[in-house]
């Protein structure tokens, strides 16, 4: 995309199950799709195990030999590089002490989580990426309310990892999500206040904010100095009934297992009845000359190629971005 904003596309939509996005030729087709839609930079998302050969740093390197080998693989499809990578230390991974189920809310887990961050930091630095995007805390339904002390504990571990990323020339961006134990505007702002602005930023996801009841445009305007990364996507629903507190909210809420039985929450830009003011949000980014990556993400949607093309259409026709 030819624009003053820097646009990237998230690959997570293709890797929807454990074993469906493994063959290199399938990955090449996804990369070519992204490229044909006008994006030359991608965001990766972490995974685990031998099948996550475009997700887990150690497995990527095993597949491609080196950082440059992986970049060569991307460039075969005319994708020039990696903007960022998403990592959730609460998500079980065999590489992280064999599915150890640690939490950033537990100070006793911090040393281990800092160790777990190192392969991501090394990998991202090696491929010339800019941001490690992280889920700062696990789901709200899995733990008691955090309180100010709890939020400070979470801030502590991210400050430590922020020092690591900073030393490697990377940014660290905390990604708010609608299920997280840091949920309200006050809690999110509290977490930002508990972290070092010099090393820790915020990844603002427009759909996650909207579902969680936070206005992304207003929040960005108020905290623009802390926003270092953006995920741009839409939603048709807000969580008006505190469904995020339901046990197993990953399934009961986000897959419609209970509550209002909404089976799909995230939508492409320009979706009918979308709640996100995408033009308003992008205008706010432009007003501030936002220097970070704006990553289009279409996770948990439908056919990834269709969504990539619709997102590209929206950028070209509604936001006036030249391909």
């Amino acid at each position: 995309m030819k624009d003053t904003l820097r646009w990237a596309y998230a690959l997570n939509q293709w890797n929807v199950r454990l074993d469906v996005f493994v063959r290199h030729e399938d990955q090449q087709r996804a990369l070519k799709t992204v490229s044909a839609c006008g994006f030359d930079t991608i965001e990766l998302a972490s995974g685990t195990g031998r099948w996550d050969n475009i997700s887990r740093p150690e497995v990527i390197l095993l597949n491609h030999g080196s950082h440059s080998g992986f970049l060569d693989f991307l460039r075969r499809a005319r994708v020039q590089g990696v903007s960022s990578m998403f990592w959730d230390p609460q998500a079980p991974a065999e590489e992280e002490e064999g599915y150890a189920f640690r939490s950033t809310a537990n100070p006793d887990d911090h040393d281990a989580i800092v160790e777990w961050a190192k392969p991501f930091v090394d990998f991202l630095a090696g491929v010339g990426a800019e941001q490690l995007v992280v889920r700062p805390v696990g789901s709200a339904w899995m733990s008691p309310p955090l309180g100010a002390d709890g939020i400070k504990v979470i801030g502590d571990v991210w400050n430590r990892i922020g020092e690591l990323t900073s030393a490697a020339g990377l940014g660290l961006a905390l990604h708010y999500d609608c299920l997280g134990a840091v949920h309200t505007t006050e809690e999110l702002t509290g977490l930002l206040e508990a972290t070092d602005p010099a090393t820790v930023g915020l990844a603002l996801d427009t759909a996650e904010f909207t579902i969680g009841g936070i206005d992304p445009v207003a929040y960005y305007r108020e905290h623009a100095d802390r926003v270092t990364h953006v995920h741009l996507k839409d939603t048709r629903y807000a969580d008006t009934g505190e469904e995020y507190r339901m046990p197993g909210a990953e399934s009961t809420m986000l897959k419609g297992g209970a509550g209002r039985r909404i089976e799909r929450w995230f939508y492409e830009l320009g979706t009918e009845d979308g709640l996100v003011d995408v033009p308003g949000f992008v205008a706010a980014l432009r007003e501030r000359d936002f220097p970070g990556w704006v990553v289009i993400e279409s996770d948990h949607g439908g056919n990834p190629a269709e969504l990539a093309m619709l997102n590209s259409w929206y950028l070209q026709h509604e936001l006036g971005v030249a391909k």
């Binding site: 996804a30 044909a36 056919n303």
Partner: peptide, 10 residues
């Protein structure tokens, strides 16, 4: 959809 995108990439 993917076939169309891959063809246009080509």
């Amino acid at each position: 959809a993917e076939a169309t995108a891959v063809a246009k990439w080509y």
